[in-house]
Design a protein around this nucleic acid. Sequence first.
DNA 1: AATTATTTTTAGACTTGTCTAAAAATTAGT
DNA 2: ACTAATTTTTAGACAAGTCTAAAAATAATT
Lengths: 222, 222
Amino acid sequence: MNLDLSQTEENYLKAIFSLSIATSKAISTNAIAEKLETKASSVTDMIKKLSDKELVHYKKYQGASLTVAGKAIAVRIIRKHRLWEVFLVKHLNFKWDEVHDVAEQLEHIKSTKLTQQLDEYLEFPTHDPHGDPIPDENGNIDFHTGVMLSSILASEIAIIMGVKDSTSSFLKYLDSSGIKLGSVVEVLHKEEFDNSMLIQIEGQKLSISQQIAKNLYVKKQR
Amino acid sequence: MNLDLSQTEENYLKAIFSLSIATSKAISTNAIAEKLETKASSVTDMIKKLSDKELVHYKKYQGASLTVAGKAIAVRIIRKHRLWEVFLVKHLNFKWDEVHDVAEQLEHIKSTKLTQQLDEYLEFPTHDPHGDPIPDENGNIDFHTGVMLSSILASEIAIIMGVKDSTSSFLKYLDSSGIKLGSVVEVLHKEEFDNSMLIQIEGQKLSISQQIAKNLYVKKQR
DNA sequence: AATTATTTTTAGACTTGTCTAAAAATTAGT
DNA sequence: ACTAATTTTTAGACAAGTCTAAAAATAATT
Ligand SMILES: [Mn+2]
Ligand SMILES: [Mn+2]
Ligand SMILES: [Mn+2]
Ligand SMILES: [Mn+2]
């Protein structure tokens, strides 16, 4: 059995993993297809292949879920992805909205020594530039403990811990508004009508939509 | 015309480039096949494809050579390969015999910003860990001016500038003999029978075969 | 429960890159 | 110059990954 996977196979495992975080149910063919911007028929073919390699559990019409072996591989890829993102931002002057596409390529480089040395070189970072947790060598992840900013009540104070949406447009919006990881945010007012909120952040007052607030992980202060 | 090449296409261009350094003639199908460890029939197919893309000149039975566009791409890949090798040795504790396979993967990462920032981060290195010249941003290369150690006469002194053979076994031999880039070498005696030589290097006397001496670039002193 | 709508799978085709075996062209040897 | 050896190309096949269109299964409606 060939244990060396193609980039495509790795991307499928990663997609199933990230779709599995929100639910404990099997992931539908369509969901995977949408995530990978491919067709359902292609997904069926690939899932069968991964099932033969015992990396996913699969029963016809029942969707897919990762086996222990499949999950271990997915986590390793995510680890590499996030370590590279840290490297790009910390050492190569990339902005947090510029790293993802390059990391999508770098995550497939195969060299355990490289990953290990990169981790050490970066001084064992625990989170990537978007606040996402970096799995350790053994595949353990500290999942986001944070709640969403949208759930914080008026007059409460919180700290920005991460972004849920990592698209360039969202990150650029945050940059232009001065919102960054570690920023202290106070909820001054919540508008009942549309759930928008007026917040105090980085020395300024700002009105943000619920859409924005739902994509920011925060840690509530006391 | 799609300008984004596959890794395979890039490897063919690189192979033709490196085989072209030794000669000004077109490169034979067989030579490419051997270099890439593939079959001649596969090479013919790919050369046709690259010819359609105007990256190689090709006439049936006449071998292949790079067009200006093809050469520019090949040089960019070699630049990336060597920059990554420098990074791995300088920052990630890789030995010079460990970098090649990883660099073979990293050279295909597509991001001009990445290449440019990496170059800057490494402080614009001119040579890789094996002494090979790194092309600059515009594709200019300082080819090895050096001669081979095998051509140095008895009683002459030279400095090790690079290795021609970068296989792990050769590099490990050099490590075990204390030979490294920058080492000063004095030729004490040349054996006429087999062209082996007795040299003084890094404070010790050493006998090396012609095979060894033919794979070391040196700069003659004075 | 029967019919519709949606999701998923299958069947067949296409692209990329590879291979083997055979044919064609070139090169070498006499 | 002719034959033999070598190199190169072609023809046909295969694996990986993708797609479209049609069939089958499941889920939602009435
Ligand atoms: Mn990312
Ligand atoms: Mn990230
Ligand atoms: Mn190399
Ligand atoms: Mn090198």
